[in-house]
Design a protein around this nucleic acid. Sequence first.
DNA 1: CACAATTAAATTGTGTGCAATATAATTTTT
DNA 2: AAAAATTATATTGCACACAATTTAATTGTG
Lengths: 152, 152
Amino acid sequence: MKAAPTLSLLLDEQLCFALYAASRAMTSAYRPLLEALGLTYPQYLVMLVLWEQDGLTVRELGQRLQLDSGTLTPLLKRLQAAGLIDRQRRSSDEREVEIRLQPRGLALREQATPIPGCLGNRLCLSLEDVQHLRDELKRLATQLNHPSHEGN
Amino acid sequence: MKAAPTLSLLLDEQLCFALYAASRAMTSAYRPLLEALGLTYPQYLVMLVLWEQDGLTVRELGQRLQLDSGTLTPLLKRLQAAGLIDRQRRSSDEREVEIRLQPRGLALREQATPIPGCLGNRLCLSLEDVQHLRDELKRLATQLNHPSHEGN
DNA sequence: CACAATTAAATTGTGTGCAATATAATTTTT
DNA sequence: AAAAATTATATTGCACACAATTTAATTGTG
């Protein structure tokens, strides 16, 4: 076990800042496209999950997106107010709230289909490079979320 | 010029979600370490810039971090309230507000030096891999921020 | 069955991000 | 030099994120 090496405090050398800046740049790039659908970026992510699997609970949505009810509850209320989803307590377990797509929410999927390709075009990366970067980021997130201190 | 290929709408295939999740995981990993310094993650980024170059204006800080005054003004007021920085209108141009480290803000640098190494340890990546990922993310952010539509 | 422990959402409070607007100082133009 | 345009910051309003607490429903235990 060796001590943590002292790395630079220079902003431009930080992986964390590159990640933070790239994530916000990505959200900004989506914004004008999603505005046409009346969605914010986190709302779009919720819709992606629901288009894949409808009828999930708030908890299950949260597991998928790594978001808690403090974030999801108001977001889902806005999607409901927009007529895209419905929120219903489950009769089998009244603690759980089931989220179901409304016709307007389901129909929105058609308008969303061109969006990933549209964004992909801007990246100037091959599909393989995008997939590789995506998988590296997934591994990074997994490492950071697990407190498996000793590894390497 | 070919049409945008229709890519998947599956959450787990999206680069954007991997980026979003990794960025939040990174911020969460920093949180307990920064809490010991009394800083939030964006506040830490501001301090990184000031430790590199003191006396920048709000505008210059914003250029460096890609943040506007709507975000920075309240954040800087909190750093000022914590006694870490000072905010002063420049006499040469009264529109500009100069940010200067206070002794406590300068001293905090010592406590921050082990942090990057501490986080680096968790990544289970070689230094070269971290640098490569960082540079890929920088290129990605540059591409996304520039509307240079045709490229590749 | 009663009651403690657990679980799922919702609520509350703080701190970003960011668009839009306002305010004030400086520069440019006429 | 006065008016118009520009620039820098601050303010306002909305939507996340997330910790901490609350509320309500369910499960586990004696």
